[in-house]
């Protein structure tokens, strides 16, 4: 029997705390597979955000650090600048990166820090109970937009990739999704490319935005959540390779 698919050792052999059908599990696995395939496990340092993925260090078998909410790009800067030969990535959710951490990600990009940022966009604050995030869709019901998000009151979904792609300091920006097997394969390719750039010492920040399902707080069954990404989320967050 030929093995077609096996679990990567970079992903620790333990159950995760994520909800059934949550995209974090998939994203973690892609990240772990890329680290294994690029053979950089022993010189990679990962940053876990504050959010559902704060416990990423329990799952990813690389040196990990857990930092204050939204500050990952600043912490990553401190790490990468003092350890240029290490591979530093930050794994952040939409609340972490696009809400409280906006200044940090913008300036890390603007300073062309040689970092890889995995940005999980699931349109809500997961850990704290499904509140509105900067990337919540118009009309989307959340714990803090019970009547659906309205542009007048709560503004528009924030398109981080497009913004960062404008900055000369970013070298690669792509938005992917986890909504189907082909999409997931594409997301893995993007993650791998982002890490490859950092390994090659390409100047500038690489960011992979990943549209990820949150069945629990979208109040959708996992398979339907995947469909919601394809049909709804991609309208505000088009899947595209925006730069590099």
């Amino acid at each position: 029997m030929k093995t077609v698919f096996k679990r990567t050792p970079v992903l620790k052999d333990c159950p995760t705390h994520y909800c059934p059908g949550c995209g974090h599990g998939i994203a973690h696995r892609l990240l772990a597979e890329v680290i294994e395939e690029l053979d950089i496990q022993d010189r990679t340092i990962g940053i876990a955000p504050v959010g559902c993925a704060v416990l990423a260090y329990n799952y990813l078998d690389v040196d990990m650090i857990e930092v204050a909410h939204g500050r990952a790009p600043a912490v990553a800067t401190g790490m990468k600048r003092t350890n240029p030969d290490h591979i530093v990535f930050s794994y952040q959710g939409d609340g972490d990166l696009a809400a409280i951490g906006t200044a940090e990600i913008l300036h890390a990009a603007h300073r062309a820090e040689q970092l890889t940022v995995i940005f999980i966009n699931n349109a809500v604050f997961g850990m704290t109970g499904g509140q509105m995030a900067p990337t919540t869709m118009l009309g989307q019901v959340t714990a803090t937009t019970l009547g659906g998000r309205h542009a007048t009151g709560e503004g528009y979904p924030l398109q981080v990739s497009e913004i960062l792609a404008l900055l000369p300091g970013t070298t690669y920006v792509e938005r992917c999704a986890l909504s189907s097997a082909p999409r997931i394969k594409q997301a893995k390719k993007a993650i791998k490319h982002a890490f490859q750039l950092q390994m090659d010492g390409a100047p500038g920040l690489s960011l992979v935005e990943i549209l990820s399902p949150c069945p629990t707080y979208w109040r959708l069954a996992p398979a339907k959540a995947m469909a919601w990404i394809e049909e709804q989320m991609t309208t505000a967050f088009p899947i595209a390779r925006l730069k590099g």
Binding site: V4, L11, P15, T16, P20, I26, R29, L178, K185
Partner: peptide, 8 residues
């Protein structure tokens, strides 16, 4: 199935 499985 394995590719979409969130829990590997």
């Amino acid at each position: 199935c394995a590719i979409v499985c969130p829990d590997g």
